[in-house]
Amino acid sequence: MQMNFNEERPIYIQISEGIEDAILSGAFQEESQIPSITELSVNYRINPATALKGINILVDEGNIYKKRGVGMFVAEGAVERLTFKRREKFYGNYIRNLVDEAKRLEITKDEIKTMIERGFEDEHRD
């Protein structure tokens, strides 16, 4: 799980989104264990309270559950729920920003379409 914190949004939200990404990409499979609060906070040099706050978002949404004394696991159906949630936010998070930036750069609608096609074709990008 890679995470580079930026100061644009609160860290706990970035933590929760980072774990969401890992679940969606299959790095954390459903019913598999995810790193503990301590591991997360040590690894990312963040306050454990912050890590907990981030994890709690996922717990509240039912995508992570805790087993007492064992650890935290990805809930069944998490991928489906997260995919749905992310799709809902896709327009606001990506399309609007894309269009705003395109306007600043004076990129036309058609040029964007070409780029999107290029993006889909280019499987080997990082």
Partner: peptide, 8 residues
């Protein structure tokens, strides 16, 4: 990292 680990 040690500080956070200790604190946890």
């Amino acid at each position: 990292k040690l500080l956070i680990e200790k604190y946890s």
